[in-house]
Design a protein around this nucleic acid. Structure first.
Lengths: 243, 243
DNA sequence: AAATCCATTTCGTGC
DNA sequence: GCACGAAGTGGATTT
C-alpha cells in the first residue's frame, strides 16, 4: 500500500491517475505523466499553451517540467522549492506554486495516457572538467600561458566592480587584470574586463599602470575591436589542453 | 507490431529494453528510461557521473536529457540535432552524439526499471506575455512612459555595437538610446547601454548630444553607480502594467 | 534576501 | 555557419 518501489499505470481511469500522482507527490517520488494537456503559467511573466501531448515531470524538490517532443528546454516549468498539488476535479489538474516570486503553473489534462512513480536513490556528484575554474588552475600552474614573466598574486580579488578572476603583475611591474572565459567571447566580456580594470585603477590611485587581458579560446571581431579601443589585450587559451 | 500508439514496459529484461528503446528512436517517438545508470559526457567540456537512479528522456529531435530527483536542469544532456543510438551490449547503453561541436553523451544502465515510448502529437505554439518585446510595445504605445516629450524613431536601430532597442529624440532634440530589460538590471546592462551610446555618438559625429536611458523594473546599487559615472539615466518600468 | 557572474547555458534573429 | 542578445534563464557563491 505504501510500498516505495516504482509503480506504473498505463491509460488509467482519470480518478486513478489523480490518486496515483497525489500518492507520488506525498511519498516524495519522481512522478511522470504523459498525456494531452493545456498549460497555463502566471508569475514573472504569463503564458498559455493549447492542448497537446506533453511529458510532465514532477520532482520531489518542487521542480515541475513540461516537455514537448522538441528542444532541450521545457516549454513550461516551475523551479525547485515550489509545491505540487493535485486539484480535485473530474480530470487531472496539477498546480505547482511558489511564493517569492508568486508563480503558479497549471497543467490540465484532457487525456492521461501514462503515469509513473519512481523512487530515486543513489545520488552522486557530477564531476565536470573544462570549466573556467579549470582554466584558472591551468594558469596558476603555468602563468606563462598568459605571458612570459606573468606572476599571479590573487584570484577573485575584490574590486568595486566585482571580483577579478586572476590579479597579478607583469615583468615590468604593471598590474594585470585577467578575465577568463571558457568559450569564444563577445563584447560583453570586454565590458566586464573594462569595468574591472577601471575599478582597479581607482583602487590603486594610478600609482601603477593597469593592463587588462582577456583569456579565452577565441574572440569575435566586434569584441576584438572593443578590446583595441579600450587598450586591452587578448590571449588565446582553451579550457582543456589541446592534443 | 509497428503500432505507433504509446507503449510501456515495466522492469523489462535487458534485451527487451534495448529493443524497445531502439524501436522508439527509429519510429520518432519520445522515449523515457528510468533506472540505475552511469553517465559520461565528452565534448565542449567533459564529465562523469557515478551510478545512480535517473530519468532519461530521448526526444525525436535528437535531444537527450538525464534528470535526477533534483533541480530544473538535467544533470547531463545533449542538445537538439544530435543522434541517438542504442549500443549493442549485455546491458542497455545509449549514445547520443553530435558533430560541430563533436560531443558524445553515454548513458550506461546497470538496471532498467522502466521504459516507455510516447507518440507526441498536437503541437501548438506557446503564447507568452511579459517579455522585453512587450515592454517595447508599451513604450511605443505611450512614449511618455520613458519621459514626457520622448519620440521613438526606430526599434532595433543598428550600430557598430549592435542594435538599439528603441532609438528616439527628446523634447530638446537630443538623441536618446533606450535599452530595455524585463527584470532588475545589473552592471552588464549598463555596459550594453554604454556601448550603444558610444557607437551612436561615433555614428552621429557628435552633431547631436546622445542620452542613454536604461528602462527596467529596478536597478542594483552597483549598476546605478555605473550609470551615474557614465552619465546615463534610469527609468523604472515593469514588463506588465501593474494593477 | 540581494548582488554578481558562470553555464556543456539554450534559443531566436539576422547576416 | 557566426554574431549578438534575450530568457519566466537556472545555479553557485558571497555578502
Amino acid at each position: 500500500m505504501t510500498d516505495p518501489t516504482p509503480q506504473t499505470v498505463v491509460l488509467p481511469e482519470h480518478e486513478r491517475a489523480s490518486e496515483l500522482v497525489e500518492r507520488g507527490i506525498d511519498e516524495g517520488l519522481l512522478v511522470t505523466v504523459f498525456g494531452c494537456c493545456r498549460v497555463d503559467y502566471e508569475g514573472r511573466a504569463a503564458s498559455t499553451l493549447p492542448a497537446g501531448d506533453r511529458l510532465v515531470v514532477l520532482k520531489p524538490d518542487g521542480t515541475a517540467l513540461v516537455h514537448t517532443d522538441e528542444g532541450h528546454q521545457p516549454v513550461n516549468w516551475q523551479p525547485p522549492g515550489s509545491t505540487h498539488e493535485v486539484v480535485d476535479s473530474d480530470h487531472l489538474e496539477l498546480h505547482t506554486r511558489r511564493d517569492s516570486p508568486p508563480e503558479l503553473l497549471t497543467v490540465s489534462f484532457d487525456i492521461v495516457e501514462h503515469v509513473a512513480l519512481f523512487d530515486v536513490t543513489g545520488e552522486h556528484e557530477l564531476s565536470l572538467s573544462g570549466t573556467e575554474a579549470d582554466m584558472r588552475e591551468r594558469i596558476l600552474d603555468d602563468p606563462a600561458l598568459v605571458e612570459s614573466g606573468f606572476e599571479p598574486r590573487a584570484t577573485e580579488r575584490e574590486t568595486a566592480a566585482g571580483a577579478i578572476d586572476i590579479y597579478g603583475v607583469d615583468s615590468q611591474g604593471n598590474a594585470v587584470v585577467v578575465e577568463l572565459k571558457r568559450r569564444r567571447v563577445g563584447p560583453d566580456a570586454v565590458g566586464q574586463l573594462d569595468r574591472y580594470v577601471e575599478a582597479l585603477e581607482r583602487d590603486l590611485h594610478a600609482e601603477i599602470p593597469v593592463r587588462g587581458v582577456l583569456v579565452a579560446p577565441s574572440v569575435t571581431d566586434g569584441a576584438r575591436e572593443l578590446l583595441k579601443r579600450h587598450g586591452h589585450e587578448f590571449v588565446a587559451l582553451t579550457p582543456t589542453p589541446d592534443e
